[in-house]
Design a protein around this nucleic acid. Structure first.
Lengths: 194, 194, 194, 194
DNA sequence: AATGAATGAGCCTTCATTCAT
DNA sequence: AATGAATGAAGGCTCATTCAT
């Protein structure tokens, strides 16, 4: 086995382990040692590559964000109409990779981190404004700005709310039902907006 | 003269201090000492009254929940129609006491706690199902069960989503705009449902 | 045994233990745990009372300095002539309390600390300028300013040099011989200065 | 083409880097990595050439000592009288290479190391006895053994004391003033000794 | 009723050191 | 000749918790 070029492999392994550990625990109250052990390395190595715990956590959050945005882009590529683009965004947000237990739990934990850490908040803002502008862009092609703005806000809130409810098992349905709920919201709003 | 009957006073002071401390920090990463100091007592006293940190946190969460439910009951008492009862619930959820910075931040932190602590999850379930059944009960008097169920789920998700967005300053509006968004959702849904 | 008012007792015990531990080791490479163990308490208590390791070390240095200055003052009180005051200062600097193995070793370690820590350097400056001004004051009553200044500098350097040589066992004599060397320096200088 | 004969170059580079790093920090609290980075190599190479950290430090100390003794020898070669030889020794000790900031700081750090490390103490002893015997040898040609011994001890102490005071910026003058102080001590002592 | 005193347990972090390449 | 990869060991520091008063 080659002993060179391990850095990207280890970084990725540590980030994956961080998601799994945080997801399992349901909070950021995890130790670097736990994450490192799950990644099959020593905690010292985690520090070697990430500097400190916070940076590892932030890198993990960024990874999740990147994956989500990639999924969004992938789905968007298949859409052909403005309304179809909105559905694509929803499919990406509730896709199997984004909507599995550990990932949702990790996202929720990051929401809390975003309250204390400026870095984390900035990342959350990137996610939120990207989602918002994606929705807005498509909605504006269907209805007027005032309606589009309101619908985008409502849909974004509903999406995050569904994440929470799923994480806490307060939402009885699965991903497709979550999507249906938001789709229905948008359809109904657009119907009424005319 | 011996101070008698201090217990309820101290308990309340500690719970208030816990909300303030958690709200300020934005997470449950607060020490018992910080809370106690804010309450003007020693950390040993906090343990004397609550046994351990977790029970103090749970008591704080329960307090917040009780206050919310009390506010809901108070608002409901002023409502006269099923639709009016729904508006009353929203007014309570976004009322000044529930929707201030520290309280929202604390709620968000508790959401995360609910992922790890069975006690906390149970409390969250109480809140979620109470909210849900309140909404459902009124909605069923206006539309059929299928529509009512969906609208209740959507509204509940939207409410929690708005809490998150407000906590992270991703929602640009204030309480009244948050209310308007949910009211509009419900109105539109009911319109279409017929 | 009383359980109140322990703070000054513990602080003193920790400082004494720090001197002994540092003196024995010959450097500041000692752990808080070692010091605490010697003082008969947990390392957590050391942090409780001093905040962190550096502050404990600085407090120890300050203690040594205070003791030295107290000894100087005590000896000065017995002196009656300017020349006698100089001898008093030397007696204090080479007195049994200041000139024992552990204390000398600790002083030497502090000299090094003074190179990196501004707090430590400030303390060293206090010691150095106090010694210097004490010597200078008496010398000026015996000879002119130019000579007095030079002699004070030379004597101060010789004193510190003798500390080092004693710490490293490069000086063959004991305290009285060290004193004699400096006394002789001063006498000779004054003789020549006229 | 394989790099051949790199060993002496690397050793020297590491030792120079060690002096600079220790001098800058003012203590031996430097990491092997810092030294290696400054030398432009990996820390593993430092271990490859020196075995462990202590040996690198000792080698650095020995280097400093060798340079000092070389300087002494160089200066001594220019002296023609016993008194001139003493001046030559002083010139060497306070020469620009020995008396620069980093070197002095490193020396002071080594003094402390000499308290814990037998190897370091042995090196210091070599320096101290060489200095002492050099001085003594010349002094004995000028005055009787008793006086010569005392003057040698006093001068040696004064020299080290001046190093400390310079390191800690407690000595206001520069090298030439330091030399003058010791020269004056010796002259005066010899005058009186007759 | 209340607290100062005290600690065990645990976590983050650093660093000298080793090893395969 | 040289280094990236990796770790064990240890230290500083925090904190919930206990206890005697």
């Amino acid at each position: 086995m080659p002993k060179i070029g391990m850095e990207p492999i280890r970084r990725r392994a540590l980030i994956d382990a961080a998601i799994a550990t945080i997801g399992e625990r349901g909070s950021l109250d995890v130790t670097v040692s736990q994450i490192a052990r799950r990644a099959g390395v020593s905690s010292a190595l985690a520090h070697h590559y990430f500097g400190n715990k916070e940076r590892l956590i932030i890198a993990t959050m960024r990874h999740l964000l990147t994956e989500l945005l990639t999924a969004v882009r992938r789905e968007l590529a298949t859409a052909e109409t403005p309304r179809g683009r909105i559905s694509a965004i929803l499919r990406a947000n509730f896709g199997t990779e984004q909507f599995d237990r550990a990932t949702i739990a990790a996202w929720l934990a990051f929401y809390v981190l975003a309250q204390e850490s400026p870095d984390a908040r900035m990342l959350w803002r990137v996610y939120a404004s990207r989602l918002s502008s994606n929705l807005l862009h498509s909605l504006k092609q269907i209805t007027d700005t005032a309606h589009a703005t309101r619908i985008a806000s409502g849909a974004a809130a509903m999406i995050d709310g569904l994440y929470i409810h799923t994480a806490l098992e307060g939402f009885p349905g699965d991903a497709s039902e979550a999507i249906a709920l938001v789709e229905n919201y948008i359809d109904t709003q657009l119907d009424v907006a005319g």
